[in-house]
Amino acid sequence: MMRLLRGAFSGSLGTLAALFARLSPGKKEGIGWRVSGLLLTWAVMLILVGIQYGVSRLHFAPGLRPVLLVLSVIMAALAAIVFMEIGKGPGINRLFAVASLLWLLILLGLGSMDPFTRVMYYVHPS
């Protein structure tokens, strides 16, 4: 399975590098710069997935394991910034994106206050 994964990765990387070489005109506002930005982001995201995969096999405290989500949040941000081009277009697009994160924060923050603050008392079975 790992050999298959490595093969797929190197194969797609080679194909995309060839595409990039054909398209790159060397101008900052040109198509090549945008393509190189996309390819770089893709490569960084694959590296982050690899780190997640590797770290998930390490032994560490169950309470610390959700830290693995941090890498996913970074990848999600990269996808939003580079693939979805959130910086382009009218400001209301960014307002909607930030508002969604705010409501998500409220949902998860207030929602998880109960499990994280509730005191569980032992009831003796009698």
Binding site: Q52, Y53, S56, R65, P66, S72, M75, A76
Partner: peptide, 19 residues
């Protein structure tokens, strides 16, 4: 849809596995 999966991936496959 890709971003949603990026969050589901550690929730399903990674966090519970690191014992």
């Amino acid at each position: 849809v890709d971003i949603v999966w990026l969050i589901l991936y550690p929730l399903i496959y990674l966090i519970g596995r690191a014992t």
